[in-house]
Amino acid sequence: MKLRSILLGASAFAMLSLGAGAAKADGELFFYNWSNYFPPELFEKFEKETGIKVTLDVYDSNETMLAKLQAGASGYDIVVASDYMVDVMIKEKLATEFDAKSLENFKNVAKPHDTMKYDPERKYSVTYLWGTTGFTYDSDVASEKLDDSWKEFFEPRKEFQGKIGALNDEVEMYAAAAYYAGVDKCTEDPAEAQQILDILQKQKPYIAVYSSEGTIDRMAAKEVSMHMQWNGASHRTKESLPSAVFVYPKEGLSFWSDHFIIPTGAPDLENAKTFINWMMQPENAAAASNYAGYMNGVKGSDAFLDDALKADPAVNMPEEYADRLVPGKNCSPKARDLRNRVWTKLKT
């Protein structure tokens, strides 16, 4: 999910903010995605091979994307949604049923990505990339190797105090504090929500910034010495900061996946299906992984992955950490309300 600063270079894929009923010419595709989460050169390749021109618009959270669609934005052909948001979009009739399994290249999709909890028959979605959310620290700053625990992030050692970056992400921060507290991240118990708030408020004086954008640049420039990060962002941080270490906290960390969705009212359903089918080709899926730093769900893509990606434990997770992964979960309205109240109180 991520690395939030857009780097489209000199390519023709400028951002376009689309309102409800935006006009669309033939041979175009309007794509709504996290920023810096898709290689510009892959858009160019797609346009060259299909004749379909892609225009990109970006968002900074699933909730921002959802709010725009709920407000009536109908100009997008494809959006990228995280696992729990797929459930929300289907239930709110914001997703178009297109039967992904009927697409020619769906045969390339590896298990377990051929199904998912919120779309078991893959009628509405196809996996784009998947990863985890932990934290990264600069080992050059640490007086000794840190423990693989959220304690290092929420109750930091002296050398990291005031030099911590946190994601400006209600879901991720709340979940991490819940793991550390040992409570369900979808708790409906106000007392447990208060435990989570206490952890977050105790940490707040040590936070330099709450931001989901620029996490890589911030670490590389040593503006902060520790940052909550998606594992792909940590991989890209290590390219500029070799001393960066990604931590898989023993209390648990979020395992997420992002998915291509065709929103209700998409101007060009066929172009959207063409794009999704094209992205299930191993070489194209690998290009996305190499750029964003996250694994994909397409068989045969390993042959095209960069060696550095395959060798980095931040991306290619050591097997012994598998039982630490906590899958995405769409919390109940009561739980979401508690979470929102905790986040609002923290940020005010």
Rank of each mutant, 00 (worst) to 15 (best):
L3P: 04
R4N: 10
S5K: 13
I6C: 09
L7K: 15
L8V: 14
G9S: 13
G9E: 13
A12S: 15
A14S: 14
M15E: 15
A22H: 12
A23Y: 06
A25L: 15
D26P: 15
D26Y: 09
E28L: 03
E28M: 08
E28T: 14
E28P: 02
E28K: 07
L29S: 01
L29I: 05
Y32M: 05
N33Y: 13
W34T: 07
Y37G: 00
P39G: 11
E41R: 13
L42K: 03
K45M: 11
I52P: 04
T55L: 05
L56H: 05
E63I: 12
E63Q: 14
A67D: 08
A71P: 08
A73L: 02
S74P: 03
G75H: 01
Y76C: 05
I78G: 00
S82M: 04
M85K: 07
V88K: 11
I90V: 10
K93I: 03
L94P: 00
T96G: 09
T96L: 04
E104L: 03
F106P: 01
V109Q: 07
V109I: 13
K111Q: 09
P112Y: 07
D114E: 11
P120I: 04
E121H: 06
T127P: 02
T127H: 05
T133P: 00
T133I: 06
F135E: 00
D140H: 01
S143R: 11
W150L: 05
E152C: 06
E152D: 06
R157N: 13
K158E: 15
G162F: 05
K163G: 04
G165V: 02
E170I: 07
V171T: 08
Y174R: 00
A177Y: 00
A181Y: 01
T187E: 01
E188S: 06
E188T: 11
A191L: 13
Q194I: 01
Q195F: 02
I199C: 02
K204D: 13
Y210P: 01
S212A: 07
A220T: 14
A221K: 14
E223P: 11
M226L: 15
H227W: 15
Q229Y: 09
N231M: 12
N231T: 11
S234G: 14
S234Y: 09
S234V: 05
E239N: 11
L241S: 10
P242C: 10
S243D: 12
F246N: 03
K250L: 12
K250F: 06
E251Y: 07
E251K: 03
L253V: 03
H259V: 09
H259L: 10
F260L: 09
F260D: 02
T264Q: 14
A266T: 08
A266G: 06
E270F: 04
E270P: 10
K273I: 07
F275L: 14
I276T: 05
I276P: 01
N277S: 14
W278L: 08
Q281G: 07
P282D: 11
P282T: 11
A285Y: 03
A286N: 09
A287F: 02
N290D: 11
Y291F: 13
A292P: 02
A292D: 09
G293M: 08
V298C: 08
K299G: 03
A303E: 15
L305R: 10
K310I: 11
D312I: 01
D312Q: 06
Y321P: 04
L325P: 02
L325F: 10
L325E: 04
R336D: 15
D337G: 11
L338E: 03
L338P: 00
R339L: 12
N340S: 15
R341G: 12
W343S: 12
